[in-house]
Structures are given as C-alpha cells and as structure tokens.
Nucleic acid binder design. Structure first.
Length: 421
RNA sequence: GGGGGAGUUCCCGAGUGGUCAAAGGGAACGGACUGUAAAUCCGUUGGUGUUUACCUUCAGAGGUUCGAAUCCUCUCUCCCCCA
C-alpha cells in the first residue's frame, strides 16, 4: 500500500521535475529540487517560486518571456508564483554585467514602469495564482540597524568574486557602495518571502546564489536556483534588453513584431524557436535540418517562427494578418494601394496650411512630421525619399494644391505612409 | 588634505589662434542590393524659401585679439594619483 503511494509520488516528482528543468541552463541543485518537490507533493503544500523583476524599463519583451513562461508552468503545476517588483532595488540598479555605474531612475519613472509591467505581465501569468509584491514594502522601512544586520552577514571578498565587480575594481572603475548593496537587498527578498525556488536569467546567477547564502544566514532552507539562457536581441549579439534597443515587446503592433522577428539573423533564429515558440522540439529539429541541408528557404522558416510568436501574443490569426502587412510594407517594389490605404496614418489637411491654395512641399513635410526642419525636408526630397502615390517628388521648389493631395498617399522612405484626408 | 587631468555637434572622439559648422567612428535617415528592418555599397546628418551668403554651436560667465573650440580669469561638473 505504502509502496504504491511512494510510487505515485515518485512518478509525480519525475513529471514535475522534467517540466521544470526543460530549457533550464543550470539548477542548483537538482537533488535539492527533488527534495523540495517530494515534500511539496507528499505534504500537498505548494512551493513558493520567486521571480524578481527589474523596473528600469516598462515593457515586457520576448526576453522576459522565457522565464515568465516557466513561472506560468509552475503555476499550472499548482505552485505559487511570487513576482517581486523591484521598485526599491531599481533605485539602486543591478550592477550585473555593468562596466560602469548605472544612472539612477526617479521614483516616478519606476512607478510608471511598474504599472505598465503589471498590465503586460498578465498576458502570460495567471493573475489568480500570482502574488505580486513590491520590495519597497520591506526595504523602505528599514533602519540603518537592519541594514547593518544584513550587511554583517556578507563579505567584500565574496562580492569581489563577481566578474563585473572585480573587473571594475582592478581597472579603477568606480563601484558605488550602493551597488554593493544591490545583491544583498535582492537576496534579502528571498528571506522575506521564504522562497523555495528562484528563477532568473544566467546573468543573475550570482544574485540568486547570494539569496541562498542569505537564507542560510537567516536559518532558512536555501532556495533552489534555476537559471535560463538569455534570449539574444534583434542585433544577434547582446542579450535582449530595452536599454540596448534590441528588444521585441510583447505588446508591439503585430506587423512591427513580425518584422522585428524577420530581422533577426539566421544564426539565432533557432534559439528563438527553442526558447519562445510553441513548436515541439522534434519539429524544430526537422526545420533546423532542412535549413542546414538547403532544402528550404531560411526566410520561409523564419516566417513560420514570426507567425507563431505573433499568434501567441496578439491572438489567433494575427500572425497571418501581420505577415500580410509585412509583405506590403517591407517588400520592395510592392505597392498595394488598397492595403497601404488601410495601414497608413491619416492626416487631415487644413485650409490654413495653404497660401493662395498652395503649400510648399518642404513646408508640408514639416507639417506631417516627416522632417523637423526645412533643411531636413530638403535633404529627403533631394535624396528621392519622398513619394506621392508612388511617384517620386524630387523638385525642392514644388508647390501643391489641396486637391492634388486629398485622398493621396505620401510616403517617406520605404515604409512610412500618410494618407491625406 | 595635496597633486594632476578632462568637459566638443545625438553618442564616442580628433582638433591647441584664421583654411572650422568642426576629422574619424557609432547611431540615425535616404538610396542601391538582398529571402530578410541582416550584411555590403553609395549619399546625408546645426539652422534659414535669396544657400560660393547669413545666423547659432565646442560646460557656463567674462576678457585678450582684426579674428577663439583653440589664449587668459573666474564658476560649475566629472575623473585619476598620492596621503
């Protein structure tokens, strides 16, 4: 009888374990994870899964989704997701990977970012199974005495084990004391919420490990840490992040999202497949093989990826819709007036813009926001970057009447359209 | 506390009396090309409807000079070294 029960428990541990470590880069430690699962399953007590969020930028992007999706999987397994918004820690700034001191964000900015983030994150997580907390809740009221209590449990030498700190230290690049506090504050979050497991990107390994140490110092069972590969950004080199401008936000316009995915290099395309798409591993392998054997056009495979991801975040069939817009907007020599008409921004012509019924082209370009000065507008025209209903306008002195404009489409460059109404 | 260095156009950075609206790179924008908003190549990148001109710009305020990003004085900001 007991044997049968044990068997069931072991099976369940195995099942959860496999789901949990899927896509993970590192688990510290696997044995501890199994023990925690055993306890959770046999005592029917859900585990507390911590994920800390930095609020330097508001938007949830595809890079975040790797770990957010994992948190969702934990929720589906019946565990408790604790999302810690680092509204206080962000005032300090995570030094991870930084080679210089970060600029400090104002409290207002952080508040705004938190608001946006909260709205977006529930596109992925189940709001009913998520505990959302701000770490200012416990960090703000601290007294110096409390800070001393925490800092006395850690040493400079241990902090200097970190690459980013030791690099800066050796090269005489400033490290503020504030930054040193960051990993400690972050680690203390784990103590406060009594985390069983903490998730994060591989760049967070040190911070997460500090959480383990800190919990031990406070006589808690140390959390298991699970790190995940960082998704490379659209530049194909750096990790995806807002500050590097190489990110794809999950709430971006579908065609922009589609286009951004199409812009990633072929080398990183399969990282995207593996980390953030809905394709099965066997399907991905097949696609990968086909591409490397030259059987298929990599562009077509990337389109599959783009459609899939857009569908996940923008709703059913949005991928196909996005692709249609993409084709018109970004394919060369493809002027589908009907579709452009649909996607171009309307601009209302006002009579007061016209003098004697005419407007100077250069002036018009300023009015619609295509240029910020006459010089800039003139350059655009001279460089043949301006088209009216697909005809190049190259005369800088051109004057246009209101009837010559109404209903027509003004285009700047390859993919900016305005429809005059 | 003492000594030294730096602040240049969106960013990095060259420029130490006129030839400077200021090299070069990055970024951005336009064009060509491409399966791709990748790569590559070419062009543009303070402003002004009279564009071989004029105006504004080289941390800030004054000054020297026919003439200053460049020299002098003070102020502000940042960094480094020694203690």
């Amino acid at each position: 009888m007991d044997r049968k029960k044990d068997n069931l428990i072991n099976k369940e541990i195995e099942r959860q374990f496999n789901i949990i470590i899927d896509k993970a880069k590192d688990v510290v430690t696997q044995d501890e994870l199994k023990q925690k699962l055993f306890k959770s399953i046999s005592e029917n007590k859900p585990l507390k899964i911590k994920l800390g969020i930095d609020l330097t930028a508001p938007d949830v992007h595809l890079g975040h989704t790797v770990v957010l999706n994992k948190l969702k999987e934990f929720q589906d397994l019946g565990h408790i997701a604790i999302l810690i918004l680092g509204d206080y820690t962000t005032r300090v700034g995570d030094p991870s990977g930084r080679t210089k001191v970060r600029p400090i964000l104002s409290i207002e900015e952080i508040k705004k970012n938190a608001e946006t983030f909260r709205n977006q994150v529930f596109r992925i997580l189940d709001p009913d199974k998520t505990e959302l907390v701000n770490n200012s809740e416990w960090l703000e009221p601290m007294k110096l005495e409390d800070v001393i209590n925490i800092t006395s449990r850690y040493t400079l030498a241990r902090l200097l084990e970190r690459n980013d700190f030791s690099y800066r230290f050796k090269n005489n690049i400033p490290i503020s004391i504030m930054e040193i506090l960051y990993p400690l504050m972050q680690a203390y979050d784990s103590v406060v919420i009594k985390a069983d497991i903490e998730l994060g990107g591989t760049d967070q390994t040190f911070n997460l490990l500090t959480g383990r140490d800190m919990q031990r110092e406070f006589n808690q069972e140390p959390q298991v840490i699970i790190t995940f590969p960082l998704l490379v950004g659209t530049d194909g080199i750096e990790k995806m992040s807002k500050s590097l401008g190489n990110y794809i936000g999950i709430t971006e316009e579908k065609d922009i999202m589609f286009a951004k995915i199409m812009s990633i290099s072929d080398d990183v395309m399969f990282d995207y497949f593996k980390l953030i798409s809905n394709f099965t591993y066997s399907k991905i392998e097949e696609l990968e093989r086909n591409v490397s054997e030259g059987k298929v056009n990599p562009g077509d495979v990337k389109r599959k990826l783009a459609r899939n991801i857009v569908n996940i975040y923008q709703g059913k069939n949005s991928g196909e819709e996005a692709e249609r817009i993409f084709n018109t907007k970004f394919k060369i020599g493809f002027f589908d007036k009907e579709l452009i008409n649909e996607i171009s921004r309307p601009f209302k012509l006002k009579p007061e813009m016209f003098k004697n019924g005419k407007i100077w082209l250069i002036k018009l370009l300023n009015e619609v926001g295509y240029a910020r000065s006459n010089s800039e507008a003139r350059r655009l025209v001279e460089q043949k970057g301006i088209k009216l209903d697909n005809d190049i306008l190259s005369n800088v002195d051109l004057e246009l009447g209101i009837d010559e404009l109404r209903g027509k489409i003004l285009q700047r460059g390859k993919r900016e359209y305005i429809k005059f109404v």
